Simulated scan of single mutants.
Amino acid sequence: MRTIEQVLDIDAMRQEIVDLGEQVGAADLWDDQENATRVTGRLSLLQGQVDRFAELSSRIEDLEALVELGVEEGDADSMAEAERDLVKIKKSVEQLEVRTLLSGEYDVREALITIRAGAGGVDAADFAETLMRMYTRWAEQHKYPVDVFDTSYAEEAGLKSATFAVRAPYAYGTLSVEAGTHRLVRISPFDNQGRRQTSFAAVEVVPVFEQTDAIEVPDEEIRTDVYRSGGPGGQSVNTTDSAVRLTHIPTGIVVSCQNEKSQLQNKASAMVVLKAKLLARKKAEEKAHLDEMRGDVQASWGDQMRNYVLNPYQVVKDLRTSYEVGNPQAVFDGDIDGFLEAGIRWRMGAEKAGAS
């Protein structure tokens, strides 16, 4: 824990919390709303990190006391409880250790995820929906809010595409390792001959930018289309043309939002997504990392970064890290922390190798 404390520089965080607290207490803070948003957001982030470190340190101290008591009293129940606590604490320490590796420029940001069905027809659309459920279940398990901006349903089953945000500090740094092509191999439930089917889905992850990361988008560069929201099987979600599709003409970027109640709300949400993608593109181009930031993947053969195999055997394996799990259903239910941690460590190793 001492090493983690030094890497995170908890003392510096505490001092910054004091400084930001003084700014928050200023009477004129909200005269500049953009600065106020930045200050309060940074304060909340730092306080959360310090609180998590303090809580974990307290749990370790309690564990030490429990072990000491169990040894002195020869209490088998206390020792058994200590063993259970040790497993939980070890996992928490590993997660905090991984957090220290998230030092990229955008890693602290929330994540905006887009999933697209690739090659494989209806199985690919079904797979895209399964991946969306996997990520939202993971977020639920960690108590991270999720905002769904758009879901485009396929005709028979599944999703053509979906865009949603995971609202948590470091969500981008954590989930960015998921960007790429995911491959599913299984007996297709949509094939009446019961044949094995290979299908693909592409995952794109970009950071959600703050209000202070303003980017100007002239009205003449945007084409706005409105249409009626649709649900699975073409069912109408509502009876008004409230869904909004924005096309950024110079870049060809298209975003949609149909999950709000009014056209005005949908347009505002779509603009959030469009600006995030445009700013990610701009900043990534400046650093020559566009593919890394946006996940330039084709969702087809020879491009995959992870395999989900359900037949003839069952395994989920990441092709970059070689991390694998023999229980695909648990993975689809959101148990992906092992893949995320392995991916973050792999990325750090790759960055060090590239710098040497």
Rank of each mutant, 00 (worst) to 15 (best):
residue 4 I to W: 06
residue 7 V to M: 12
residue 10 I to L: 12
residue 13 M to V: 13
residue 14 R to W: 05
residue 15 Q to K: 14
residue 20 L to H: 00
residue 25 G to R: 10
residue 27 A to S: 10
residue 29 L to V: 12
residue 34 E to N: 10
residue 34 E to F: 08
residue 39 V to S: 02
residue 43 L to V: 12
residue 44 S to V: 12
residue 47 Q to I: 09
residue 49 Q to F: 05
residue 58 S to R: 13
residue 58 S to Y: 06
residue 65 A to Y: 05
residue 66 L to P: 14
residue 68 E to K: 09
residue 78 S to I: 14
residue 80 A to S: 15
residue 86 L to Y: 09
residue 93 V to D: 02
residue 110 E to T: 01
residue 132 M to F: 04
residue 139 A to E: 07
residue 143 K to E: 14
residue 145 P to A: 11
residue 146 V to R: 00
residue 152 S to R: 13
residue 154 A to I: 14
residue 158 G to W: 03
residue 173 G to V: 01
residue 173 G to K: 00
residue 174 T to H: 01
residue 179 A to W: 01
residue 182 H to A: 03
residue 186 R to F: 07
residue 189 P to K: 04
residue 190 F to G: 01
residue 192 N to Q: 11
residue 203 V to S: 00
residue 205 V to F: 00
residue 206 V to L: 06
residue 207 P to V: 06
residue 223 R to V: 14
residue 231 G to E: 04
residue 239 T to P: 04
residue 239 T to C: 05
residue 240 T to D: 10
residue 240 T to R: 10
residue 241 D to T: 04
residue 248 H to V: 07
residue 251 T to V: 08
residue 255 V to R: 02
residue 257 C to S: 15
residue 271 M to P: 02
residue 278 L to V: 00
residue 290 L to P: 02
residue 290 L to H: 01
residue 291 D to I: 03
residue 294 R to N: 14
residue 294 R to K: 15
residue 299 A to Y: 02
residue 300 S to P: 08
residue 303 D to V: 03
residue 310 L to T: 08
residue 319 L to D: 03
residue 321 T to A: 03
residue 321 T to P: 03
residue 322 S to H: 11
residue 323 Y to W: 04
residue 327 N to P: 08
residue 332 F to Q: 02
residue 338 G to V: 06
residue 340 L to F: 05
residue 341 E to H: 10
residue 343 G to D: 00
residue 346 W to I: 05
residue 354 G to H: 01
